[in-house]
């Protein structure tokens, strides 16, 4: 066991980790931050997406020890202290960008990263950026729409509401 220390959602935390302890396990089992989900074991579904030092990563494909000393953000840190949803979260709710909610934390974190890199992405850029985040419920329509809306684009012309 190794003592691992990191900042998670702005708070300093530390805990024990084995070499094989994944960052996702450290967050879920160690810190009780169960918003980060695990949906596959081949690093494809993206439900476990978090930010490490500001970069989008799949927390199931990184060891906790590798995040020692890092700044980690998870979906639990996205809303304001008073519970006010972030712009991205609000857009997902407003445009029905989630159904079962399981992929949603990863989608929110991926969107945050996308909009930081590209504040006004096109539909094609959004779809390409989400290639590492699988949703089985929405057919992606409302996720893409929500992301366009979150980036301040007019989505009223997009069919169906």
């Amino acid at each position: 066991m190794t003592q691992v220390t990191m900042t998670v959602n702005g708070k300093a935390v530390s805990g024990e980790a084995e070499g094989r302890t994944l960052l996702s396990q450290f967050l879920r089992d160690g810190l009780g931050l169960t918003g980060t989900h695990v949906g596959c074991d081949t690093s494809q579904c993206g439900a476990c997406s978090v930010h490490v030092n500001g970069k989008l990563v799949k927390s199931c494909t990184m060891f906790a020890i590798e995040a020692d000393g890092a700044e980690v953000s998870t979906v639990e840190g996205e809303a304001d202290e008073d519970g006010t949803l972030s712009t991205i979260q609000q857009a997902f709710q407003e445009h029905h960008g989630l159904q079962c909610g399981f992929c949603t934390p990863g989608m929110v974190m991926a969107t945050k990263s996308l909009l930081a890199e590209n504040p006004k992405p096109t539909e094609a850029e959004i779809r390409a950026y989400l290639s590492g985040n699988i949703c089985r419920c929405t057919g992606y329509h409302n996720i893409v729409k929500a992301i366009m809306a979150a980036s301040g684009q007019d989505v009223s012309a997009i069919a169906a509401e």
Partner: peptide, 9 residues
């Protein structure tokens, strides 16, 4: 290659 998260690691 892969997807954005994979490309970061």
């Amino acid at each position: 290659i892969g997807d954005p998260a994979v490309r970061n690691r």
